[in-house]
Design a protein around this nucleic acid. Structure first.
Lengths: 338, 338
DNA sequence: CTGAAAGCGCTTACAG
DNA sequence: CTGAAAGCGCTTACAG
């Protein structure tokens, strides 16, 4: 029943649709008496603008798609939370899209598929490489998030993973740790994320004068506590004896806590552990996790600013930006005694 | 540049827009030669239908809003994941909306605000009571999720919290536990969720012949590990000596693990702990959590079926459905020895 | 099997 | 300050 159209209001108030539109949009140059008359008509009829009509007429939907692998990974849930809030402040709403294990979804996000349903897309790729991303681009404004290599033509916002990883190692070294394991890199075809964290890990070791020992690199499934626990457990049973474990992400760190605990190793006394992401669980678990934390608020702000500039017509080369990160020190790898 | 319209294709192919539309929709009664001709024009021009135009013409958007308090609460992230997948299978996409600490968002979701941007809404209310929900209803099809009391006029899908809570208590009792604490109910104005779990808790105790002891009920902030740890910690320091802690949700259970651990109490030997939701962290944490798990796949299926029936015109009374739940037994409250 | 035309509900130059 | 009219890109009875 509330199928009142703009034209109904116009007729009821005895004005043109243009005038009603002016009132609805709070346009200033409307005579007060006209405004009142129109407003009354709006109230009496219970008029509410139909967004579809508006979208068609303006060519905008007010929606931005956010695409990443999996909402169940705590970091992504938090990212979505922060971005959704920031988008709201800018008058946009977020449409979530999980790419899961389907490269197709990432391709679809980049193609014109999305044209008409969203004004732009924020994509954290996990399957597509730089070349593919550059090729599949077609129409919709896009900003890339995360560590994957980005083509020069697209905007890209991320934290400096290499520097952050080196910082983690330096923190562990300052704690007196000498045998710092890395848990875990993918078995084959390590992701760009793992690759960068490994580079930083190595830089950190070298910077601290520690030997780089390939036998301390454990491989396994990423972002999965159980598989990480198994992988680390197997390595420990095999004789690896680290005094610290640099974990690729918080979920992996949870797995490390389990593998260590089950073998009677105390964290941090015997083995220090670090995570990455600072998801809710990092502070909730015991021992709480020392970990790298991206400045998500800044990340959200920058990513949206860049995307909105594109939506509004900017067409220059890709901007590649870093946002701040920090090392959150907690129980699993405490601050060194002074 | 890819601003090719349906009419461009029609002109290029020398047919009417209707015919192009027929081809685009795979309508069967199109002569093969015509179809080929049109398809060629589509390919040559790189035509892609504009969703906005279609939406305006059909009155559908193919989108469903999902509104709940906070994406950072693991249960909701998992719910969104499951629903998003299920919606995709039915040809719909999910628009996420966090109500956070704003009752307004819940009201907005129920009102016609959403009309035009989504075809229907799935709402897990946390602020609005049944009366308010019933009143604010205006136009958009709605299905309610979760424990809050639902008006008779609206569809509602949930698990039987009372039965599930009683089951948890019975499990703990079977383990020989006699002093089962409840962590935690809100300080004031307990949510309907807490209320129902408390009712079930009490029913379980009575069913097992255990005394109901109000001093074993701890209050505190819900879904927050730290505040739960503090609340339980204070109670323990105050002399409360439970041999089991029934936690309202997984995050609270994490807090319980901390409070107990810090006081040298072993889980489950000294104190058993149970969670609720079976979020990723429940199985990842050590000790892993015994907890209640809703059959989320069924929940998603039913909620969407009901909503889509409404979208397609069903206008009957509210359907109120339960979906299955189970008790997942893990380390924090293991299966009783036989 | 296909076309011409109206309509979905808004916005927006262009006049006045 | 306000109006008449075209247009956004599709769909869909209605004819034929």
């Amino acid at each position: 029943m509330p199928n009142v159209r703009l034209s109904d209001v116009a007729q009821h108030a005895g004005v043109s649709t243009k005038t009603v539109s002016n009132v609805v949009h709070g346009y200033v140059h409307v005579r007060e008496s006209t405004r009142a008359k129109v407003q009354r008509a709006i109230d009496e009829l219970g008029y509410r603008p139909n967004l579809r009509g508006r979208n068609l007429a303006t060519g905008r939907t007010g929606m931005i798609a956010l695409a990443f692998p999996d909402l169940r990974i705590p970091y992504f849930a938090e990212l979505a939370h922060v971005l959704s809030r920031a988008a709201g402040e800018r008058g946009y709403r977020l449409l979530l899209e999980e790419s899961g294990d389907a490269p197709d979804v990432e391709r679809a996000m980049l193609s014109a598929q999305e044209a008409g349903v969203v004004d732009g897309v924020l994509l954290q790729p996990s399957w597509l490489n730089s070349t593919e991303i550059a090729q599949h681009r077609r129409g919709v404004p896009v900003v890339l998030l995360g560590e994957s290599a980005a083509p020069l033509t697209l905007d890209h916002v991320r934290i400096d993973n290499i520097a952050a990883a080196a910082q983690v190692v330096e923190h562990l070294a300052a704690l007196g740790r000498r045998r710092i394991a890395f848990l875990c890199a993918e078995e084959s075809a390590p992701s760009e994320t793992s690759r960068q964290r490994l580079i930083g890990y190595q830089q950190g070791l070298e910077h601290c004068g520690l030997p780089v020992d390939a036998s301390l690199i454990v491989t396994g499934r990423v972002a999965d506590a159980h598989s990480a626990a198994r992988a680390l457990g197997a390595a420990l049973d095999d004789g690896m004896a680290p005094d610290a474990v640099f974990c690729r992400d918080d979920l992996v760190a949870l797995g490390a806590l389990r593998a260590l605990g089950e073998r009677g190793l105390r964290v941090p006394e015997d083995v220090a552990v670090t995570g990455w992401d600072d998801s809710t669980l990092a502070s909730a678990v015991r021992p709480s996790l020392t970990c790298v934390r991206a400045d998500e608020a800044e990340l959200a702000r920058r990513a949206l600013d860049l995307l909105i500039e594109r939506i509004e017509g900017f067409d220059g080369l890709g901007r590649h930006e870093f946002v701040a990160h920090s090392l959150v020190v907690r129980e699993s790898a405490p601050r060194p005694a002074v």
